[in-house]
Amino acid sequence: MHELIAAPYLDSFLLVRPGSPKAAKLPFAEYSWLLRAADADADCPTWLADVAQRTWGVGLTGRRLREAVAVRLLSPYGYGRASYELNLGCNYDCEHCYLGLKQFSGLEWPERERLLQVIQAAGVLWLQLTGGEPMIDKLFPETYQMAYELGMMVEILTNGSRLAAPKNLTLLTRHRPNKITLSVYGATAEAYDGLTRRKGAYRMFIKGLNAAHEAGLPLDLALIITRHNTHEADAMRALADRYGLPYREYTHMSPTIYGGAESLASQAPDHLADREPFRGCNAGHTFFHVDPHGMASICKVGRDNAVPLMADGIEGLARLGGVADSLMLRTGGCTGCRLSGTCRVCRPLAKVYQEAKAPLNRYCQHAETRS
Rank of each mutant, 00 (worst) to 15 (best):
Y363L: 00
H213I: 03
G208C: 11
G208D: 13
D39I: 00
D193A: 04
P348Q: 05
G280R: 02
D93F: 10
R81A: 12
M152G: 06
G333N: 13
G62S: 04
A212M: 08
Y258H: 13
L339T: 01
R248S: 12
E262N: 12
H96L: 08
R81E: 14
M146V: 09
I136W: 12
E111N: 14
A7Y: 07
K207H: 11
A147F: 07
A265D: 09
E262D: 15
G100S: 01
T181M: 08
L272K: 11
F13G: 03
H271C: 11
A37Y: 05
P255A: 07
E249M: 02
A165G: 01
T55A: 09
S371C: 07
P134T: 07
R176D: 07
F140E: 00
R112V: 02
S340R: 10
H285Y: 10
T130W: 08
A49H: 10
L169P: 01
V58N: 03
G57I: 04
H271E: 09
C343M: 06
E232R: 14
L34C: 10
R72Y: 03
A311P: 05
T230E: 12
L221D: 04
N168Y: 09
M204E: 14
S263G: 08
A38F: 03
R242E: 08
G333V: 08
L73G: 12
E67S: 09
W47V: 08
S20T: 02
C334G: 09
A121R: 15
C97S: 05
V154Y: 08
D50F: 02
S105F: 10
S340Y: 13
A367Y: 12
P141C: 03
K138C: 07
H231G: 08
D193P: 09
T158Q: 02
L10P: 03
L245D: 01
E133N: 10
D325F: 13
E142K: 15
R242N: 06
I136N: 08
R17Q: 15
T158L: 01
Q354A: 14
G100A: 02
P246T: 12
R203D: 11
N361R: 15
G208L: 12
Y192P: 04
R176S: 09
F288M: 11
W33M: 12
F28C: 03
A68M: 02
G80I: 01
W109A: 13
D39V: 00
L327V: 03
P218Q: 00
E315Q: 13
G208T: 14
M152P: 04
V184F: 05
A189E: 14
G132F: 05
L34K: 13
Y243N: 04
A215Q: 11
R176K: 15
L223Q: 00
I136D: 08
L86R: 11
T181G: 06
R17N: 02
L107R: 11
E262H: 11
P21M: 07
Y258R: 10
L217A: 03
A358N: 11
G316Y: 09
T342G: 03
H271D: 05
E30I: 11
G100N: 00
N210C: 01
D274F: 13
E214Q: 14
G216I: 03
P21W: 04
D193Q: 06
V301T: 14
G284T: 09
R319L: 13
H228R: 06
G321H: 13
L239C: 00
I257W: 14
L339E: 06
N168I: 13
D291R: 02
Q354I: 10
T55M: 08
A356P: 11
R347M: 14
L217V: 01
S297M: 10
L129T: 06
T256S: 02
